[in-house]
């Protein structure tokens, strides 16, 4: 070791050179081994970082995945609730249908007033003529006849048109059939002519 250290001395610098001139040559004590940090803690730290990172990432990913599932569940719930709200809203709107209200009012014996008077509060004056309510201003709820005249007319026209179309189609078919037979006849007769 010392042999190895000696030629290195002059390289180290002028300080060491001065020392050698002042002191006698003695055996150089073996230099302390280079101060090495204990390896184990470092390895443990790095492994922990590595493992921690991997596990952390895994946990993070898992939790993300879980929240994705939760998001999906909540989304479905929101959709269901929105659909339910729409369904209820639709029901409410159906209940507000004037036809329905009129039918229910009629069941309760209510009628539309013919005429109403108005009371002007400041001078306590009655304006207009009130008339007792009878049924004369209350229109019926449903049509009296199943189909009005113009519907019958329209249906008749549609039927006629359909019949005419059918007839035309049949005629066209007949004509086609005739034409084909004619063509066939011509084809049959033409070889004769050739002869």
């Amino acid at each position: 070791m010392s042999i190895a250290a000696a030629p290195q001395a002059p390289v180290r610098g002028p300080d060491r050179a001065r020392e050698t001139t002042q002191t006698r040559l003695t055996a150089v004590p073996a230099p302390l081994p280079a101060p090495t940090a204990p390896r184990l803690p470092f390895v443990v730290l790095v492994s922990m970082l590595l493992v921690g990172g991997v596990v952390g990432l895994l946990v993070f990913n898992t939790s993300m995945q879980q929240s994705a599932f939760q998001e999906q569940r909540l989304q479905e719930q929101a959709t269901t609730l929105a659909a339910r709200e729409q369904a209820l809203d639709g029901e409410l709107k159906k209940m507000e249908d004037p036809h329905k209200i009129a039918a229910e009012a009629k069941e309760l014996g209510m009628v539309v007033p013919q005429n109403a008077a108005m009371l002007r509060v400041p001078d306590a004056k009655v304006e207009g003529e009130a008339a007792p309510a009878n049924r004369s201003a209350t229109p019926p709820l449903h049509p009296k006849v199943a189909k009005p005249y113009s519907v019958l007319v329209a249906e008749q026209k549609a039927e006629d048109a359909a019949a005419a179309k059918k007839k035309a189609a049949e005629q066209a078919k007949k004509k086609r059939a005739q034409e084909t037979t004619q063509v066939q006849e011509q084809q049959r007769t033409s070889p004769d002519e050739a002869r």
Binding site: A102, P139, P140, P148, S150, V153
Partner: peptide, 23 residues
């Protein structure tokens, strides 16, 4: 006005049917 529209439609329907009109 939806409610007025309903009343007008029903009243008109009644009149058309009572007079046996086309429309």
């Amino acid at each position: 006005d939806r409610d007025l529209q309903y009343y007008v439609q029903q009243t008109l329907m009644d009149a058309v049917q009572k007079s046996r009109a086309e429309s």
